[in-house]
Structure formats: structure tokens, C-alpha cells
């Protein structure tokens, strides 16, 4: 059975403006697929809904979440410190499907960057060639962690680091091998532009979508997206059927 467990906070650190890295320790090992997420429960009686947060890394019983403190819930999370506890669900949703061979291009935008780290580590362990391409507003985060795993391309909106412009523009001016599978998480406009780029290049692309969720495990049907599957328009739950979908099917 799936469950919700109490996790101890080992660290909760500001690593870029509004971006926090939280290290959690659970009593049991976590078996997460790259691209899955966990529900974080605030348990304060007022903010009831779980916060779905992508898994940055999961190793043994350690869970790393990197999140942006943007709304009331994530701001409450940002206020927690070492020694505090949080309830978190088992990993939820479907993750990325790694190819059997070749290159994976991991494209992250903003807080879409963190889940790509666990994906990069899993891809490298599988013997794949790893290229990461990330788009940031300004300040970078998780840069060293990605550089340890593979090649890293960077784009910033303000040009403060790397390519001045969007990450998809950066890709257009880069050499991407023909054996590449593209895996991505980020804001919708970025994903839309990326899917178009991949279609032009003939590269398979999987995208991780975001939507305002209720339960996070597929019961409430709050977070649907539309897919075009061979001409049939179908609605899928982002939390349960996704969050990762075949990019060429997503109707943005």
C-alpha cells in the first residue's frame, strides 16, 4: 500500500532567491522514479491541500526537494528548520522513461530544473550520454550538481550567465546529437517551444506538466490536461496519468 510518512528535516537552505533546498530523512528507503513527485502536507489546520513537489533526488531514505517559496504553502515550508518534521507521501505519478541507449537531453526551466537532477543521475547510471540545458530567470542553482553528471548548457533571461535568451533559443544554436531523447520540465511556454523544436529536429520528447492539484493521487480529477492521441482529444490527470507525457501529444 502507498502511505504518507513523517520525515525529519535535515536541512532547509536558501540556494538562490526564493529557491530552497530541503533535505529530508525518512524511516524507510524511498523508491522513486526520475520525474515523480511527493505530496508535502503542512498540517497546520488551515492549509489543507498537499503541496505537490517534484523529487530532486532520492537516495536510500534521503529525499531532496528543491522548491520555490512562491505561495503561502511553500512559504510555510521555507520557514521550517533542521529538526522540524513534515509529512510526505510516497512518490506519486509516472516518471520519465529513459531510452535504452544514446543521448538524453534534459531541459529544465526555473523550478523545473530540480527534477532533472535525479533524472540525470539515473540516466548516467544507465550509461547514457547526458546533456542538460537549463533556463533560469537570473540566478543559477544546482549548477555544480549537474556539471558532475554531464555537459551543462545554461540560458538566462537577463543574460547574467550563459546564453542570453530562452533555453530553446540556446538549443537552436547548439549541436544536439541525432540519437537524442529529450526530457523536460518547466513552464508551459518553454515546453511548447521545446516540443516544436523537437518536432522540427525529429527528436522524441517527454514533458512534465504542472497543474493546480487537489489530492495528487488521482481521486479528485482536479488537474487535467488535454492530449491529442492519434486525432482523439482525451483528458488525462496530470497527477496520476502524468506528470510526464509524450510531448507531441500535449495540447498546450
Amino acid at each position: 500500500m502507498k502511505k504518507i510518512s513523517v520525515a525529519g528535516i535535515k536541512e532547509n537552505m536558501l540556494i538562490a532567491p526564493d529557491i530552497y533546498r530541503m533535505e529530508l530523512e525518512l524511516s524507510e528507503d524511498i523508491n522513486a522514479l526520475p520525474g515523480q513527485f511527493v505530496n508535502v502536507y503542512l498540517d497546520d489546520g488551515a492549509h489543507l491541500l498537499p503541496r505537490p513537489i517534484s523529487i530532486c533526488r532520492a537516495e536510500d531514505n534521503r529525499l531532496t526537494l528543491v522548491y520555490r517559496a512562491v505561495g503561502v504553502g511553500t512559504k510555510i515550508m521555507a520557514g521550517l528548520t533542521e529538526g522540524d518534521t513534515l509529512r510526505v507521501s510516497d512518490p506519486l505519478g509516472n516518471g520519465f522513461t529513459l531510452p535504452e541507449s544514446g543521448t538524453v537531453l534534459l531541459v529544465g526551466g526555473g523550478v523545473g530544473v530540480p527534477p532533472m537532477l535525479g533524472t540525470a543521475i539515473a540516466a548516467k547510471a544507465k550509461g547514457l550520454n547526458v546533456i542538460a540545458a537549463h533556463g533560469y530567470r537570473s540566478e543559477l542553482f544546482l549548477k555544480e550538481e549537474f556539471e558532475r553528471v554531464g555537459q551543462l548548457l545554461i540560458a538566462t533571461d537577463d543574460g547574467s550567465a550563459g546564453y542570453h535568451g530562452t533555453v530553446v533559443e540556446l538549443l537552436r544554436s547548439s549541436d544536439i546529437p541525432a540519437d537524442t531523447t529529450v526530457l523536460s520540465c518547466g513552464p508551459k511556454p518553454m515546453l511548447k517551444a521545446l516540443v516544436q523544436y523537437c518536432e522540427e529536429k525529429g527528436l522524441p520528447v517527454q514533458v512534465s506538466l504542472e497543474e493546480r492539484m487537489g489530492c495528487g493521487f488521482g481521486a479528485c480529477v482536479g488537474c487535467v490536461c488535454k492530449l491529442n492521441q492519434n486525432g482523439n482529444i482525451v483528458q488525462k490527470r496530470v497527477c496520476k496519468d502524468g506528470p510526464v507525457f509524450n510531448g507531441s501529444e500535449v495540447i498546450f
Partner: peptide, 14 residues
């Protein structure tokens, strides 16, 4: 059903 967003949080409810 309806378009998204379909869910919003409120104090002690949704």
C-alpha cells in the same frame, strides 16, 4: 467537465 484550474485552496477548506 470544466476547464482548469479546477481547484483552489481556502482557509480550512477548498
Amino acid at each position: 467537465g470544466n476547464p482548469t484550474p479546477r481547484i483552489a485552496e481556502t482557509y480550512g477548506g477548498m
